[in-house]
Design a protein around this nucleic acid. Structure first.
Lengths: 154, 154
DNA sequence: CGATGAAAGTGGCATATGCCACTATTTGGC
DNA sequence: GCCAAATAGTGGCATATGCCACTTTCATCG
């Protein structure tokens, strides 16, 4: 491997993104710790809260998560009584999700902690810079990425 | 919860970052699939490759990973014969890591696949834009984030 | 030198995520 | 109405990550 390639890898968009995610994840996790929630759980509760009894698939799509991964992640939240599920009236394949009263309360509690972390972060990088970063990340998340499928013949 | 708060959360830097990471992770994972490596494993092999028989702690620090997480992540790579470890000559607490010949070969193979994904990504967002994003993410990763420790009374 | 505390990893436990195979429902033809 | 195809989730398996408690080595100080 040449030096050029070595330098090249430090430019791996995926590695860079994950690295930053690990750092930021720990920061938000620490901030949320008093509530007993992880950053991902908080995000999931919030997503459910702001949706109208969303179907699993809808949540997965919104968060760009694998449907089965969502199911797994939901389990501890159901176990702890923050979330409950119920079958859709018209289509029994569909499972809808909502927060329990305890879930709403826990979310309220967590939001206070989250706000402090969010404020802290934006203080460091600047609200404007943070907004720009999020916009870029959202754009990346919405990309329809796909490899050229190894020359689809014809 | 008010609409203002709802909007507020869509501004969670952590959630936005993770969401983008999931998308991009899948893209790179797909691209690397023919090699049998995941994006993280590729990144880890690369990091080891470009370092000089790094100690576990050094790798963890470079990748902003928990030391124990690194240990776990390393296991399948050791099991598959891509990586090997050995004790430091002067300090037996330190465990150093290096690629095996098979590991080097696998890395070479993966780099070809990675390059295609990287190229594809940069084509979509623009090389310059991608570089700016990585710079921002690196800056975020290097932040010394920390909550004010709940009024340290002085 | 011996006790003490710091440094580097390991193992166990728990959550986060994905893929794949499989099941249950619904929908669409015929 | 019946069977094939599409939809929505589940469960199992594997990796990704972290925290905490514990072990092994060093380094320091008296």
């Amino acid at each position: 491997m040449t030096e050029a390639q070595r330098a090249g890898f430090s430019r791996c968009n995926n590695a860079t993104l994950r690295r930053a995610a690990r750092r930021l994840g720990r920061f938000y996790d620490d901030a949320l710790a008093p509530s007993g929630l992880k950053g991902t759980q908080f995000g999931l509760l919030f997503q459910i809260h702001v949706s109208s009894e969303p179907a699993m698939g809808a949540i997965a799509e919104a968060l760009i998560m694998d449907l089965s991964a969502l199911g797994h992640t939901l389990k501890p939240l159901i176990r702890d009584g923050y979330v409950e599920t119920f079958a859709d009236k018209d289509d029994r394949r569909i499972k809808r999700v909502r927060l329990t009263p305890q879930g709403e309360a826990k979310l309220d509690e967590a939001i206070k902690l989250w706000s402090a972390a969010q404020r802290q972060f934006e203080e460091r990088v600047g609200a404007e810079q943070a907004a720009k970063l999020r916009a870029t990340l959202d754009a990346v998340a919405d990309l329809d990425l796909q490899m050229p499928a190894a020359a689809p013949s014809d």
